[in-house]
Design a protein around this nucleic acid. Structure first.
Lengths: 98, 98
DNA sequence: AAAACGTATTACGATATTTTAATATTCTAA
DNA sequence: TTAGAATATTAAAATATCGTAATACGTTTT
């Protein structure tokens, strides 16, 4: 175990990440991406939310470093930046499965 | 794997939980409690935040079912309600350790 | 080069969250 | 039974987040 200020710093870092996950639509997007790269169109179809909103969510998560994007022709493909995050999301899905 | 609407419902449920964790001070409180029951005074000492604020955070998390409380004389002892949540928090601490 | 497609950005009102300060409550001990 | 310690509640201002609508941007196709 570590000292308090270290623990607090970690909490600040982790909380900043969790702010992104703490929204139903963003979490859903991340769950989709935890299964692999996906285009905005695909995410749009699955989520059912508006184009603008999805794009804003993705932009935000890219800005915060949770996801990365690459363009392929007309499409933009998103993926989760850090395998640790993928793992965490899948853990959460299993944990709150029932 | 399950159908989309099931996945979305789960995301809604989980996001509601994560909203509580997505705050540095609340996450810190939960990390403390993940190690075992603690009084408000103890949490207050460790966190260093104001009495009112800590109490509000705890009240909120109790309302949302993340923690439970019992009174012991003058003190109120808090604990995490669901072992699953304790486990998740410890997983997160390890995951974002470095 | 214009049209069409996929994605991103901007602006704004509505709503929610966070924090501080002041006060109230509950219990114990004198 | 009053004082004091521990905790909770309330109110209100400051700030942040959310969703919609309108528009812009980049790429491909015609």
């Amino acid at each position: 175990m570590q000292d308090l200020s270290t623990a607090k710093k970690r909490c600040a870092r982790v909380a900043a990440i969790l702010k992104n996950l703490a929204h139903p639509q963003r979490l859903f997007l991340l769950c989709c991406l935890a299964k692999g790269e996906a285009s905005v169109s695909e995410l749009l179809r699955q989520s059912g939310a508006s184009q603008s909103l999805i794009s804003q969510h993705l932009t935000r998560m890219r800005r915060e470093g949770l996801v990365q994007a690459r363009r392929e022709g007309n499409f933009v493909l998103y993926r989760i930046a850090d395998p640790k995050l993928s793992a965490l999301i899948q853990t959460m899905e299993k944990t709150f499965d029932e």
